[in-house]
């Protein structure tokens, strides 16, 4: 068990190192990139960059230096915003994105799992077909389209909820819905499929045969096992929510990290792009590994075939 944990943590370190190395390589490969003297950059920032990245040193020294800074959690200065560091930008924007993402994940789980279970219980009846149809539509509509439609209908036409902004509870509703649409539908499908699978197994029939109450079978016997695939999907789910938030935050004018990232892409603010990539990459890979570890605790069978 401990060996497995250590192995995964080692894995994590390697992945983060690879992400940092790739971003470094790309930063130097960009034509007209941050270190190109042709590019116009404010004097103060240029001086900063030259001091910070030690452009007069040989490449490997620059690399080690960069690595050392990132390991210490210093992602460097922004190219377009004078006097701002990538760290400040992340510190500013990420809490908002994280809150929005957290709510979206929560909504997907709290709505998706019950609907999936319900659909499985009504297998092949009209309720099941309706849910599945909506779930298929849900996974086919990209989040930015869903977001725009929500803004249009509920924000502009019906004026039920604010169409943009950040700060009040009402302002979170629409972006959270837009962001959770895809994962909600996906989790519904996943829960339904795995619930159907579990409900067909022998131990459920045994429980039914010995007269265990239907509710107890459902929650204590079936759901406990049926939820496992949903747990494995949590890693990709979190990743999907955060990358989805790039456009959703832009559409709803939420001053989160996602919107900032998109703006930086438009401005070609390379240090911010790379810094945020390193940050999100590290975050999501860590999440993935945490999810794997949680899964291992939930499902004791998993440990037996760790050896591969």
């Amino acid at each position: 068990m401990l060996g497995y944990v250590l192995k995964r943590v080692g894995h994590l370190v390697i992945v983060i190192w690879i992400i940092i190395t790739i971003t470094f390589a790309m930063m130097h490969a960009i034509p007209g990139g941050p270190f190109d003297s042709e590019r116009y950059v404010a004097e103060e920032i240029r001086a900063h960059i030259e001091a910070r990245y030690r452009l007069d040193e040989p490449l490997y020294k620059q690399y080690l230096d960069y690595l050392w800074h990132v390991v210490q959690g210093d992602l460097g200065p922004s190219l377009t915003y004078e006097g701002r560091r990538v760290n400040d930008i992340i510190k500013d924007g990420f809490p908002k994105s994280a809150l929005l993402g957290f709510i979206s994940v929560l909504v997907s789980l709290l709505v998706g799992v019950p609907i999936g279970v319900y659909s499985a219980l009504k297998h092949n009846r009209w309720q099941d077909h309706t849910v599945m149809l909506m779930a298929i539509v849900g996974v086919s509509v990209p989040s930015f389209i869903l977001a725009t439609l929500l803004v249009y209908y509920f924000g502009l036409k019906l004026q039920w909820l604010p169409a943009a902004g950040w700060g009040s509870v009402q302002q979170i509703v629409l972006p959270a819905l837009a962001l959770s649409g895809f994962s909600l539908a996906f989790i519904t499908r996943l829960t339904r499929a795995s619930m159907l699978d579990v409900m067909g197994q022998d131990y459920i029939r045994t429980a039914q045969a010995k007269g265990v109450a239907q509710g107890v079978i459902l929650f204590r016997h079936a759901l406990k096992n049926a939820i496992l695939p949903v747990v494995t999907y949590l890693g990709p789910l979190i990743a999907a929510v955060f990358t989805g938030s790039f456009v959703v935050e832009k559409i709803f004018s939420i001053p989160g990290l996602g919107q900032f990232f998109v703006t930086s892409v438009a401005n070609r603010d390379y240090t911010v792009i790379l810094g945020v990539t390193v940050f999100y990459g590290t975050l999501l890979v860590t999440m993935n590994i945490l999810v794997d570890l949680v899964y291992m605790f939930l499902d004791p069978r998993i440990v037996f075939h760790k050896q591969d």
Partner: peptide, 19 residues
């Protein structure tokens, strides 16, 4: 493959497109 699997691919694509 395992190592790359954990990294959200769209970030890579964005990075490549920027570069």
């Amino acid at each position: 493959v395992d190592i790359f699997y954990g990294i959200p691919l769209i970030l890579f694509v964005i990075l490549l497109m920027v570069v």
